[in-house]
Structure formats: structure tokens, C-alpha cells
Amino acid sequence: MKLLSYITLILIGVACSSDKDNYVPIENEKLEFTVPANFPEPSYDITLNPPTQKGFELGKKLFYEGQLASDGVIACGFCHIQDFAFTHHTHIVSHGVGGALGTRNAQPLHNMAFMKEFTWDGAAIHLDLQPIIPITAEVEMNETFNNVIKKLEAQPEYVKLFAEAFEDQKINSDNMLKAISQFMIMMISANTKYDKIERNEGSVFTENEAAGFELFKSKCASCHQGTLFTDQTYRNNGLPVDLQYNDIGRKRVTGEETDIYKFKVPSLRNIELTFPYMHDGRFKTLDDVLNHYSDGMVDSETIDPILKNEDGSLGIPMTTQEKLLIIAFLKTLTDDDFVNDNRFSEF
């Protein structure tokens, strides 16, 4: 019986060998993409790029691959460090090849599958396309896709990994971007104290955290909305314009004067770890951030109307004590499991 099976297997092989001589079916397990119970539906269409074990591994290797940059050093993971929820720890603006300085603070990477647009101004409208920006920007990785593909093709390890991860087995930009996305969409951070409370998993807020949450809901949650802690809009939060950068924000993407100095409302998940804060990393601490919201705003044409009070004053009134409570609450958004998750670590 066993012999017969072998014969028929050989027959199948022979009968189809015409142009698929090199094709060897590979075990490539599908990864389970599970939406946390307290999360909305993902924006990313998982069915168009379902994550697999091999695709994920390839994406992770690419994420930490210095060859994606012209100097062979600056990988995605250089500015997106896991310990700090994939931000560039303590760096005000991101650093690129040859010591080049960007103009913006590297944003954290987590729950990317749930985001509709990417970067501080929404210059990428799909996760698969976002890496085009850092890879090709002169002040970031300063490389071309043509070169990256050549460099990857020269490494047998990548030839093997691409062949295992994708049906067409090719090293090309489509597969490269899909693999990176597979890695990123699996980076779900949903195991904070806040989540465990929201999902009734037995945790409880301390008195201060609970008071902070109440204050947060009334003072912050209109923009930092829902369980993702962002409504994914672009707003001017009254930061004085830093003339060194004169970053026009969302206007760069839309060309609209009404979008000048507007930036994406960031998620506040893991906010304790992702300092410094704001699009240009100007604030070192959460204290500084809340002091800005209470007393630091400057008026401008596009300042968000929600930040203007009835008496014409600007800002969100908060006492020192209230700020402490809000910060206590914000610290319940730190996900230790996520920053220590070996699946996402370089080594």
C-alpha cells in the first residue's frame, strides 16, 4: 500500500513537472489575527494579505534589516524600538542615514491594523504603502526600492524566505511591503490594565486612576476617543509654531490652508513609554503635555474650536491635582506584555 502511494505520488509529480520543476510545496502556517474583544473592526483588510508564519518572520527580518537603508545600518527598528512601544526613545526628531535629522518624532507602532491613515499628516493612506516614505526619504533611510531588491536578491536567506512566504516566490516590492505589513498588523497592544478592566478580566482601577479616568473622559476623550484613544482626525492643538521646522502639518497632504498646523490625534496607548511628545517631540514629560493643554496654547486661524472656551480663553482648564490624576490614568494604558513580546523582538 505504501509502495502504491509512492508510485502515484511520483505519477502526479511526473505528470505535472512541465514548468514547475522547482516548485516544492512549503508548510506555511496561517497566523490567527484576533481582534481584541474591546476593539473595533480593523481598517486593514486582512483577507487581502492574510498573515502567515513565514510572511511574518520575513516581515520582522525586513523590519530589523539595515540593508533597507542606503548605509546598510538604519533599519525601521532603529527609530522604532520595542521597549518604548516602537518609538525612538529620547530622540526629539528621528535620525536617518549619515546623521541626518528628520523634522518629526517617530510615532509608536501598535494596533496599526486599526488605523486608517499613517504618519503625522496622513501622507500614507494604506499601511502597505507607508514604508515607501521612510525607505526613500533622504533624511530617513535614503534608499531606492530597486537597490533594496537587489541587495535582498543577493542574500540566499532572503531568496529562501520570500519563496517560503509567498506563492509567486518572488523578491519584489509588493511582497516586501506585504511582509512588513504582516509583521505590523500582528503588533496588537491590547493587554493593558485599562483593557483588562474594560474586558472585565478582574483588574480594578485604584482610586486615583478611577478619578483620572473620569477627568480624562470629560477633558480629553473628545479627541482621544474610544478604545484606540484617537478619533484619527487631524487637529491643531495650539502648539506655538517652531520656526526651525515650520512644519505645516496636514496642509502638506491636502494643500488646504484650513489644514495648516494640523496633526493626527495620536493614540495614547503606551503613552508613558513614548516620550518625548508631540509631532516634533518638544515635550519631555506628560506634565509638560498637560501644562501645554491647560496654559500653553497659542491662538491661530486653524486652532481646534474645541480648545476655545466660551469666555474666549484657550485651553483645557485643569488643576495640578487633576493633572496628576489624569497621568495616573494614562499609565494604565501601558502594555508590558506588548513591549516584552518576543514575537516582535529583534533577537
Binding site: L129, I132, F145, I149, L177
Partner: peptide, 12 residues
Amino acid sequence: YPFESGTANFIP
């Protein structure tokens, strides 16, 4: 774009 598979291969 980029939903139809392979279209990102236009990038280079």
C-alpha cells in the same frame, strides 16, 4: 491601489 495584488511592483 494597492489592493489588487502585485500593483506595488510599479514602485521601482
